[in-house]
Write a protein that binds this DNA or RNA. Structure first.
Lengths: 141, 141
DNA sequence: TTACGTTTATTAGCTAGGCTAATAATGTGA
DNA sequence: TCACATTATTAGCCTAGCTAATAAACGTAA
């Protein structure tokens, strides 16, 4: 284990970026991209939201989310309804098709990683599991 | 901690992608991109290599590496010499300028992460440190 | 030695996925 | 009412990957 913050930071940065690149390259099913799925999952989990709220949760700028939402709407996975008080916003919700896609797609995409995880020792899995919540805090503050 | 492979896979995928997105957005110094730095670091570490070898180590397709190497050469951070036996290949090595850039850039880029790490408990840091080598294996097999 | 298949690298062109700056539309408050 | 703020979108840029096609060099077998 790296003995100080700087060395840990350096090692973690390289490991994270390479692992993420590897994950992103895994396209078991090409009906939706990872960014689309991520946004869809957010809407599905946190209920109907405005575009700005989704962008904030996903930590992207509003224009980036505009693109993602346009593709999700075009595919029929989300739908917009008008905000009762503010006509600038629209309320975005997952459609049944979107919900179904999310379930299937998530399972399919997790398959590769889960298969890889089988090769790891229980000790390794414990380490990964413990790191998940720390990584969450690292990525979402 | 997620109780099985599938759940761990799902949680880890989301955490990794979000943390990586966050890291990638950190551009303290814009003289080189992360892909360029990663390739440069590989050449620096593993000695003179051919383009194909670098692509294999970085886990990208040859055309992607062609682009990266062209930009690195244009900036004077790598140089090519002819392969003594196979004139299709060229041997790629880091220049002194490239080596210097790598040192400075890595330190600068690590700064943000290191600062963030200071906010974490010793326990969290231990978890991250333990996860690094597991992530390495996950990303590089 | 010539011809053919293989390997290595590059070029061309596509897509995703992010960004900033500028614009449009709506809301809010003096 | 008029100025400012907020929300979303559009336009245009960049990184970062991919596949398909091409060029050049290599190796081998007739």
């Amino acid at each position: 284990m790296p003995p100080n913050h700087a060395e840990l930071a350096s090692a973690l940065r390289l490991s994270l970026l390479r692992a993420a690149r590897r994950l992103r390259a895994q396209r078991v099913n090409t009906t939706a991209t990872l960014s689309q799925l991520s946004a869809l999952a957010t809407v599905c989990k946190s209920g109907p939201l405005s575009a700005g709220e989704i962008a904030a949760i996903e930590r992207v700028q509003p224009p980036s989310m505009t693109k993602i939402l346009a593709s999700l709407e075009h595919s029929g996975w989300i739908e917009r309804s008008s905000h009762p008080e503010d006509r600038r916003q629209s309320i975005i919700a997952v459609t049944p098709a979107g919900r179904e896609l999310l379930t299937e797609e998530t399972r399919a995409r997790d398959e590769w990683l889960a298969k890889r995880l089988v090769e790891f020792s229980a000790e390794d899995l414990r380490k990964l599991g413990e790191a998940v919540d720390v990584l969450d805090r690292l990525g979402s503050e």
